[in-house]
Structure formats: C-alpha cells, structure tokens
Amino acid sequence: MNARIAAVDYFLPAGELTNEHLSVQFPEWTVDKIAAKTGIRTRHIANAAESEASLAVMAARALFDNNDIESSAIDFVLLCTQSSDLSSSAARTVQRQLGLRLGIAAIDINLGCSGYVYSLGLAKGLVESGVAKNVLLLTADTYSRYVNSADKSVRTLFGDGASASLIAAGAAESRHLYAFEYGTNGSGGNALIVPNGGRRPGQDIAPSSATDVRGLVSNGFDLFMDGPAIFNFTLSVVPTTVESILHKAGLGLDDVDLFVFHQANAFMLQHLRRKLGIPPERFFISLENSGNTVSSTIPIALSEAQKQGVLQPGMRVMLLGFGVGLSWGGLMVQW
C-alpha cells in the first residue's frame, strides 16, 4: 500500500488584522502598499482563549465534517507546531478534546515553514510500514503572539491558523507521495528566531535580534527575522530543490500540473515563479486572506485550490516548504 492525502481542510480564528488597521499604526505604509509588498490583505489572529491545540481541534472537526470521516478511524496523531503554549504535548490535548480513542499515538513535531512536508514524510512512513492506517496530520501556529506590535517587518506578514489532513493507505500500484527531498542548514538558525522563546537568550545567537538594537520595547518574545538573509537563502535552495525533486520523480517542469510552495509572501513567491519559469496558472498563491501561517500555509493552499476547482483528481502537484531552521523540503503528490 502507498500513503496518500485522502483529505485536507483548515481553520482560521475569527479575529482579524487588516491592512487598514496596520496603515493607521504605520501611516507611511498605505493599505495598497502593504498589499503590493506582501500579497496579504487580512491576517487572522487568535484570541487569548485560543491555543494551538484548540485551533487544531477546529481544523480536525472541519476535516471530519466536510469529508465524512469517522474520528474512530484515526490511529495516529501528528501535530506540527512551533508555538505551543504547553510544556507537554499539544497532540495529547487534541486527542482528549476530539474524543479520540485511547489506543492511539499522539505526538508533536517542532518545525515551522517546512513542517508540513516533513510531517507528510513521517506520516507516509507510518502508513506504508503498517504502523498506522489513518494518520491525522495537524499543523497549528500562533506566531502573532511572538510578534512585537511595533515591528512592521513581521507584523504585516504573519497570521494564525491550523490545518488538518488525513493520510491514509491508497492503491498499491500508484505513487501518491514520492520524490521527497530535504535539507537543513543549522548555521542559519539565527535568521528567524524568537529571542526570548527559550532559556538561552536569543541575543547570544543573533545579536541583531536585541530589542534595543531594533528600536523596540520588548513584549517578552519579539520575533526577529533577517529578511534579506531569508530571501537569499530561499533563492539559493528552492531552484536546486525543485530540480532534485523532478530528477527523483523522473519528470520535467512541464509535467507538473500545479506548484504549491510555502506561502511566505507574494513578492518572494512571484520572484521564485519567474526564476523557475513556471506559468502563473500552474503556480498557486493563497495568502491574501490568511497571511503567512507558518506550517499551515501549504495545506491551506491545497484546500483552497481544491475548493476553487484549481486542484483536480489525477494532477501531479509539487509541494515545497522553506524557512525557519533553516530548513527546506519538497515532494511530488499524485492527487
């Protein structure tokens, strides 16, 4: 048997941070300027009562309800997050709140922008090795809580959200998830960090992340992103990763029906699209009404592409995530 993405859905919290709100705080950035630079008009923001676990639960319920999936069929839960509000497993909380049976595994995965791809690889291994039959793969992040409200460089980008995918056994004669390619460059870990997110001061890792250097009053977290470093990293690894995936799959660029990359920001995505020579109609962008939701951007885009009729059964789709870590990963999906 071969693992496949049987269904995908997502959930966004009700709170919103619009370009209109941001332009009031940052008058030098008009509504249209923010949209032009980021491709984003609205970001959804979790309230104080919402957590990664609760967002993931809502995404899972949407998945179950919209695809006639029985929760009793789930025998493994993977939850990818980098912003859990618990010291213990958020996946365990999801198991309890969804009322999933006790005889299942539930674990967290700590990864960001490439997290969905990495989690797909783990879910594939679980299904194809016979360890699990139906893996509930969840992604959830609330990066907005890490963002300093006075830092427009990141506040204009990040939104909160969660996704849920069912990874299940497919036809043995078909390749559904294949041609995986991964990469890690830990020396670039200082390019995107939460300086006060752990016991070690982030300023020791990235001196330029210090709030006094950035002209900010600390909120206790103060997410820091070296934009030029992330941009250059992306331009360096994405083209070679695309080439490697195609080589492993035995495909050419024109054989791919749809490309769904991590939805970092529209400027970066369009730059990559042009650099790779991909036609706009085969390159899906979906962040205007959600922003950069970190590990959830790819599954949200997949769900939106399906709802809009862009993604059809039988299509060959390339997924590619990149960012915090620094890490990257991609694969081919037979939809």
Rank of each mutant, 00 (worst) to 15 (best):
A3T: 03
A7G: 05
V8S: 03
L12D: 00
N19E: 05
E20F: 14
E20L: 14
W29H: 11
V31N: 08
V31C: 02
D32A: 14
D32M: 06
K33A: 12
A35G: 03
K37W: 00
N47K: 12
E50V: 13
S51A: 04
A53P: 04
A56H: 03
M58S: 15
A59L: 11
A59H: 12
L63Y: 06
N66A: 10
D68Y: 10
D68I: 09
L79F: 03
L79Y: 02
C80W: 03
S84T: 13
L86H: 15
L86F: 13
S87A: 12
R92C: 13
L102E: 14
I104G: 01
A105T: 11
I107V: 15
I107H: 11
I109F: 12
N110V: 13
L111Y: 01
G115M: 10
L120I: 15
E128K: 09
E128W: 09
S129N: 07
G130L: 02
K133R: 15
T139M: 10
S144A: 11
V147H: 06
A150S: 15
S153W: 04
T156E: 11
G159R: 07
L166V: 13
A168G: 05
A169D: 04
E181G: 11
E181Q: 15
Y182A: 08
Y182D: 05
G183F: 01
G186E: 09
G188A: 09
L192H: 02
V194G: 01
G197Y: 07
P201C: 02
A210G: 03
V213S: 07
L216A: 12
V217F: 04
M225T: 02
I230Q: 01
I230G: 00
N232P: 00
L235N: 14
V237W: 00
V242E: 01
S244Q: 11
I245L: 06
I245G: 03
G250V: 07
L253A: 14
D254G: 10
D257P: 00
A266F: 12
A266D: 12
Q270N: 15
H271L: 14
H271I: 12
H271P: 03
L272V: 13
L272T: 09
R273Y: 10
R274L: 14
P279Y: 08
R282G: 03
I285R: 01
N289E: 15
V294M: 12
L302D: 01
K307Q: 13
P313E: 00
G314A: 07
V317C: 11
G323S: 09
S327H: 09
S327C: 13
M332F: 05
Q334G: 10
W335Q: 06
W335P: 00
